[in-house]
Amino acid sequence: MNDVSLIVKVVAYILIVPVFIFGSYVILHGHLSPGGGFAGGAILATLVAMLVITFRDDFKENPHEIFSILECIGMIFFILLAFFGLSSSFFHNFLVNLNGLFGKPVHFGVNPGYLNTAGVIPLMNMAVGIEVFSALSLIVLMLSMRYGGERK
């Protein structure tokens, strides 16, 4: 039954932490460097795909419930952030340039790239990152575990 070779398992164990850190970095630095919620979420979803390929036979049951909940949380968080700016307009950036949370002002030109900038954009990046990660993981899980469940 356990037909995944030891090499694949060891490489998967080694790659778990770097892939997770890289995906989180791409999500959290979305307002400073190329990337963002969509790209980072896809990177994190490749981690789940790797784990499904490697450890599919060890799963007792299909863990899709947690991804459904996470997906809904990300979507609701994103729409709520859009509604919070409704004092002036939908999707208004209500945190920027206030010197509060993510409120450090940025001026035109080359900047050192502080993380504490850009208002609601990092929060929206996190929401979209969670949503994309959960959605792609859910699709991978459902498409792969079906055949895993049929195999006796």
């Binding site: 307002h31 460097s33 940025v106 001026h107 030109g109």
Partner: peptide
């Protein structure tokens, strides 16, 4: 873009 949205990445803004 940088002054209004505070994001150094114009694409993200």
């Amino acid at each position: 873009g940088q002054a209004q949205t505070g994001s150094n990445n114009i694409v993200t803004s």
